[in-house]
Design a binder for these strands. Sequence first.
DNA 1: GCTTGTTTCAAACAGTCGTTTGAACGAATT
DNA 2: AATTCGTTCAAACGACTGTTTGAAACAAGC
Lengths: 242, 242
Amino acid sequence: MSTVIQRQKLAAVPNASASVPANGGITAPATDTKSRILDAAEELFMEHGFEATSLRLITTEAAVNLAAVNYHFGSKEELFQAVFTRRLDPMNQQRLSLLDEYQKAVEPSALTCEKIIAAMFIPALELSRDTDLGGKNFLRLLGRAYADPAPFIREFLSSQYAEMIAAFRHAFGRSLPHLPREEVSWRLHFLMGALSYTLAGTDALKMIEKYHAAEVGNDELLLSRLAPFLAAGLRAPPSDIT
Amino acid sequence: MSTVIQRQKLAAVPNASASVPANGGITAPATDTKSRILDAAEELFMEHGFEATSLRLITTEAAVNLAAVNYHFGSKEELFQAVFTRRLDPMNQQRLSLLDEYQKAVEPSALTCEKIIAAMFIPALELSRDTDLGGKNFLRLLGRAYADPAPFIREFLSSQYAEMIAAFRHAFGRSLPHLPREEVSWRLHFLMGALSYTLAGTDALKMIEKYHAAEVGNDELLLSRLAPFLAAGLRAPPSDIT
DNA sequence: GCTTGTTTCAAACAGTCGTTTGAACGAATT
DNA sequence: AATTCGTTCAAACGACTGTTTGAAACAAGC
C-alpha cells in the first residue's frame, strides 16, 4: 500500500546543451542516466553504507528506472566499484605525479615528510573542492569503505591503492633513512588511519564548524592541523624493540 | 518503532557459578542461550557488518531458535548494542581508573603523553588477551563500528565514549600546557583515528604476522610501535594558523 | 496431582531485496 | 517505409529480511 511505484518521466531530454546551469545553487543537474545514477549512489552509499542502500532508493533519487542500474552497470557491486573508480583513479594518479614533481624539484636530496604528506593530501583536498558537492561526499564514502568488512570492497580498494602506497612508502623511506623499513611501513599505516578516520567521520566536520565556521578554507585548516602531527610522528625515534 | 519490549526477566539465573571452564582448549562453550547469541553475534557482526548479518545466520551459528533473539534482546538493534555494552563498558571504566591511578602516582605534576596513551591502550590490549577469542573479535568490531554510517550506532557509541574522551582530553591538556585546547582536541581526534584504524583493519594483523610471527606478544609490539608515533605527534609544535 | 511462569520451537507474517524479462520507445541507417 | 540498435519501462521473479504468534517443553511451588 501507499508505496506507489515511482512514475518516471520520459527521457528525451535534449540536454542543457552548453548553457551554464545558471541556477545560483550548488548542484549540477547531471544529464545522462549513467551519471545521475553515479551521483545518487555516491551520496546514498555514503549516507547509509553499501548493504543498507537499496537500488530502489538510488533509482528513485536519480529519477531513473529501477532496471537501469543492472542495464548500465551489471550489478549493485559493479555500481559500487564504478562510483569509486570515477574519482579514486584520477586522485591517486594525481598524487603520484605530484609526488614526482616535488621530488624532481629537490633532486638529488630527499623530500621532507611535510612535502610527502602534502602530495598525499592536496589531491584529496582538491577533489573535495572541484566538484560541486560530490567530492566531499566521496571522501567520506572512501573513508568509510576502508573499514567495510565486505571482501569485495577490501580487495577492490587494496588493488586500487597498491601502486600509490608503494610509491609513498618509498618516498618516506628516503626521507627517513635512519628508520628501519619495517617501522616506515607501520607509520605509513598509522598515517592512513588518521587520514581516513578524519575524512570519514562527521566528527571532524563538526569540529571545523564549531571552531572556525567558514573563516579559512576548511580544507587548508584541516591540513594545517594534520600535517604537523603526522610529520612529528613519522620523525620520532624508532622503537627499541627490534 | 520503539516497540516496547515484552517481559524479560533477569532474575534467578543459576549462572555458571564459580566453575572454571577447565577445558584446556580455546573456546568456552557458553552454556546459556543469551551468551551463545552474544558470542555468535560478536563474531558475525565483525565479519560481515551489521546490515549484512542476518538473524538467521546468528541463530544458526549459536544453535538456538530464530525467535530467541527477539525474546531475549527485543530487536536486532538492541542485540547489537548488547554486544557492545558487554565489553565496552568495562573497558572504558578500566581506562578511566588506570588513568586515575597513573595520575595519583605523579601528583601534583602532569602525566607524560606516553603514560596517557598507555592508559588508553592497555585495557584494550588486555581485553584482546583475556577472553579466549571474543576479545580480539570485539576490538575489530569496535574499530569498524566507528566508521559505520548507521545513526543508531553513531549515537550509541558517542554516548558510550563521551565520559572517557572528556577525561583523556583533560589529561592531554595538562600534559601539553603550551598547546591550545583546540589543538588538543584535534590531535586526540587523530589519535583515535590511528587507533581505531589499526584495531579494525586486517592490515595490521597481516603486518604483525609478516614481520614477527608470534615472537613477542603481538599486543605489546603494536603498542611499542604506536606509542612513540602518537606521542611525537602530540608534542609537535602547534600549527601557526590560529 | 495441578498450577504458574519462563523459555524454546516451528510456522507464518508482511515486506524488501537484487535481478530478469519482454514489450515499448527514439533516433539513426538502410 | 522499414529496420536496426541502444535505451527505458512496468511488472514480475524467487529468495531473503526482522518480527510475531501460539502452541509445546520445562522447571519449580503448592
